[in-house]
Structure formats: C-alpha cells, structure tokens
C-alpha cells in the first residue's frame, strides 16, 4: 500500500468516524429521560416521518419541485455568468462598461430581491427560479472574470505568434486556461442555489422542500423538519460529489486536479 492509498483510506475512515460519533451522540441525547421529543425527536420518529411523507407522496412532490428549481436556476444563472464573465474578463471595453455594475450589485444578498420580485412577478415558479438564477450568477460570474484575467500572458503571446486572431486566442487559449476558475465558480454556484432555494421556498411557495420545512414548523412536526434537513443535506452532498467527478474529468490536464 503506498502513501496515497493510506491517506485516502485514513480520510475515509476518519470521515465515517466523525459522522458516526455525531449520530451516536444524537441517539444518546434523545434517549435521556429529560429529553423533550417535541424539540429533539428521536431518530425513529425522523425515519417514520420519512416513510409517512413518502407514502403520502408529499416528499416526492416537494423534492421534484425543488430539484426542478435548482436545475433551472443553476443552469440559467451559470450560463449567463459564463457568457458575461468571459466577455467582461477578456474584452476591456466590455469590462469598463459592465464591471462597475457587477461590483455594485455584488454585495446585495440575492434574498433581498425577493420582495421586489414578488411584487413584479407574483408568487410564481418564475420568481423562484429567477432568485436562484441571480444567486448563481453573482457568485459564478466573479470567478469566471477572475479566471479570464489570470490567463498567463505567455500562452496568449504563444498563440498570437502562431497567427491566432484575437478571437481565436479567446476561444482556444483564454477559455480553456480559465476552466479551473470557471469550474470553481460553478461549484460555489451550486451551493448558492441550495441556500437560495430553501429561503425562497420558505417565503413564497406552496410546494418544495422549503415548504415542507415551513409546514413542519407551523404544525409543530419537528420530526418532519429534521427529516427535510437531512434530505437537503444528502441531496446537496450527492450533487457536490457528482460535480467533483465532472471536475476531475475536465481537469485531468491540470497539475492541481483533485
């Protein structure tokens, strides 16, 4: 077994260990006689809530609605970020034109747009997707711009002296050289999509995971609240894992690949 293998297996075992310890601690606390199950429901109740919600179909509906919003918002937001970021990061005129705008809007939390979006578009599917898109766009575009600005000059010079036009340099050098930054932007955007999703559903939705959370609070179903939290965590985790796979594939050329 070489060094890398030991490291990988150590990471795996320690990861499993930390999760298991938390799990055990939760079971221990909920089994104490002075625990109030209405505040901290035992695991059996959480599991039961999971099956109840599956049987009624409400978990299925909620998950479907939420995943749809995530994918739509993520896709629209990151695609816009890729286009705008590449242009802003590469063409000075566009940068001078658009960059102040991005810098001005960047500190505003995307959730701050919720009231105005509801006023304009109502509590519609479009509104929620729009909020998630804005969140994804804002965190992603900054990375794309940074990536385009960090393209090593020597690659640009090398391509130019081989006869590449300005646009060819952009397409064949700048964009691929910026992919590490771009992918990081996409990954951060995925996290932002989840954060914004739940917030937007808490405020304005009749379905979705955020709605299930809200319903749990309203009817004091702590086990349902806990169950949804676990589901969200699991989904976000799985998506991030899948994303890492894609990242590893796209970055196989890079020294810094994971």
């Amino acid at each position: 077994m070489n060094v890398l293998d030991t490291l990988t297996s150590r990471r795996l075992w320690l990861g499993v260990l930390s999760v298991a310890v938390c799990f055990a601690a939760y079971i221990w606390v909920t089994n104490r006689p002075d625990n109030n199950p209405a505040l901290l429901p035992p695991i059996s109740d959480i599991v039961k809530s999971f099956f109840v919600n599956i049987e009624s179909g409400s978990l299925h509906t909620a998950l479907g609605a939420s995943l749809f919003r995530i994918f739509m918002g993520f896709f629209i937001g990151t695609t816009m970020a890729l286009i705008v970021g590449c242009l802003v990061g590469w063409y000075k005129t566009i940068e001078f034109l658009v960059d102040p705008l991005i810098e001005a809007l960047r500190p505003i939390p995307p959730l701050a747009y919720i009231p105005i979006i509801i006023i304009w578009f109502g509590i519609e599917e479009f509104s929620r997707v729009l909020i998630i898109s804005i969140a994804c766009f804002m965190v992603c575009v900054v990375n794309v711009i940074a990536g385009m600005k960090n393209v090593p000059q020597v690659y640009v010079d090398a391509a130019s002296t081989m006869g590449a036009s300005r646009f060819q340099v952009f397409r064949t050098v700048a964009v691929p050289a910026a992919t590490p930054f771009i992918i990081t932007g996409y990954r951060i955007a995925l996290g932002a999509a989840w954060t914004t999703l739940v917030a937007s559903e808490l405020l304005a939705a009749q379905n979705g995971l955020g709605f299930l959370l809200q319903e749990g609070r309203r009817y004091f179903l702590t086990d349902q609240v806990m169950m949804v939290i676990v589901i969200i965590g699991a989904c976000a985790f799985l998506m991030d894992r899948a994303f890492r796979r894609i990242q590893a594939y796209l970055m196989q050329w890079s020294e810094a690949r994971e």
């Binding site: 020597v154 690659y155 090398a158 002296t161 060819q168 050098v173 050289a177 992919t179 050329w253 890079s254």
Partner: peptide, 29 residues
C-alpha cells in the same frame, strides 16, 4: 502573424492539450 514564430523562456506549452494537439495547434487554427 505566423511568419515569425517564437519560443519563449517560460513554459508556453498549453497544459490543457495533449502533446500532439499542442504540436498541431497552429495548423488547426
């Protein structure tokens, strides 16, 4: 333009292309 090619002091090989794709970069343009 392509009439004057340059080899740089720094490493200018495109890391995102294989050796072969680097070699044929100019003609591909």
């Amino acid at each position: 333009d392509r009439r004057r090619g340059m080899v740089f002091q720094q490493d200018a090989v495109f890391p995102w292309m294989t050796v072969a794709k680097n070699i044929s970069y100019g003609p591909r343009l």
